[in-house]
Simulated assay, not measured.
Amino acid sequence: MTTHAPHQADWRAWQDSWDRQQEWYLPDREERFRVMLETTEALVGTRPRVLDLACGTGSISDRLLKRMPNARTVGVDRDPALLTLARGTFEGDERARFVTLDLSEEDWPARLGEELGEELDERGPFDAVLTATALHWMRTEPLRALYAQIAGLVREGGVFMNADHMPDESTPRINAALHTHEEKRRQRRLGEGALDWGGWWRALSEDPALARVAEERFALFGNPAEVRHDHNNEEFQSAAWHAATLREVGFAEARTVWASPTDALVLGLR
């Protein structure tokens, strides 16, 4: 499997393009990152060892290392194209590693330990496990099981944070109005030339330096430019569910530390 595209790929340009595409969906994306990293610093200091879970292009790792130059990060994901961008961006930076793993496989923590050359046990090797806009593709029970695995990777006093879509279904009229307003914003931005999810993947596949790894990605998940939905769109858990589940699986405290009308950042403290 391809792990790196040819060196002529413009890694930073693609990182910036990814950020703009994500901001088309999440105009407050940088604010959630800011709160996530400030809270990480408050609870575990400025030299944390971080697991960037479902890391994609390494957006969290990028911001973490700029804010905390003495941090170390391990990114895990299964998307070969996004991992290629992450590896290209951080090539030569010994503070960051990236590992290909499928979080739906039961043995992924053990496989991560093998990749890192260490045994990951109940002592918890990470000061923080951070993830954003990634776990919404998991249904409720697999996500509950994943949270239990994550609890075993966070040291005593360490943190887990998940920033993602966490709707409140108790306010249908509010939700409908916000949805309509947001759709108008997105359509306006498309008219101004913004790329949506499918458009971004189409552009990536047209870059000669990345076309091959894009095809590898499409073979695994389908081509987002052709498939309307390649994520779970049926089971979204509320912020209250996330906090309660984190407490159930072994976190001493858990609560929402940031929220927008549709998304939230939930923190669990071991």
Rank of each mutant, 00 (worst) to 15 (best):
A5S: 10
V129D: 02
L85R: 02
Q237I: 07
A214S: 10
V154A: 11
V44W: 02
D207A: 08
A54Q: 05
H165R: 15
H136G: 15
E119G: 03
E182H: 04
F98T: 05
A42M: 01
F251V: 03
L83E: 07
L204A: 13
D196Q: 11
R173E: 12
L116S: 04
Y25N: 14
R72D: 01
D19E: 15
E105C: 06
P27G: 08
L220V: 08
V213I: 14
V227R: 11
S170R: 09
T2C: 02
T39F: 06
A209H: 07
E30N: 13
F218C: 05
G199M: 11
P80G: 09
A176Q: 09
A225P: 15
G191C: 00
E215A: 14
M68E: 09
L65Q: 08
E118H: 00
D127F: 01
F90K: 05
G191R: 08
D168L: 12
D52K: 01
V99M: 09
H181T: 10
G58Q: 08
A9T: 08
G56I: 15
T171F: 12
M1Q: 06
G92I: 09
D196R: 09
R63S: 14
G222K: 03
L82Y: 05
G117E: 00
D52E: 02
A9Y: 07
P261H: 06
F251T: 05
R12H: 11
N233S: 07
A254C: 13
G124L: 00
L220M: 08
R217S: 14
T245V: 13
Y25A: 13
L26N: 13
V76L: 10
N232E: 08
P27C: 09
P167E: 15
W137D: 15
T2K: 04
G113F: 01
P6L: 03
C55H: 04
L103K: 06
R34E: 15
F251A: 12
G268A: 03
A259K: 14
A176I: 05
P208D: 14
E215D: 10
A243S: 15
L146F: 09
A209L: 10
E118D: 09
T3L: 14
R123I: 01
V213G: 11
T100I: 11
R49N: 03
L267R: 12
F221T: 03
P48C: 13
V213H: 10
A163P: 04
T180I: 06
G117W: 00
V227A: 11
A176E: 13
A96G: 09
T171C: 08
N175A: 11
S170T: 15
D16T: 12
E156M: 02
R49M: 05
L269M: 00
E253C: 08
A211N: 02
G222A: 07
G157L: 05
Q8F: 14
L204T: 11
F251G: 12
T3G: 10
V35Y: 04
Q22A: 13
H179C: 08
D102H: 11
T245K: 09
T39S: 10
L53M: 05
L116M: 13
G268L: 01
R202Y: 07
E41Y: 01
R111H: 00
D93C: 13
E94Y: 03
D196A: 12
A151C: 10
E183P: 01
D168F: 15
M138I: 06
E156V: 02
G58M: 04
E192F: 07
G58R: 05
W200C: 03
W11C: 15
E169P: 07
T39A: 09
T84A: 15
V159I: 15
D107W: 00
L37I: 14
S170A: 12
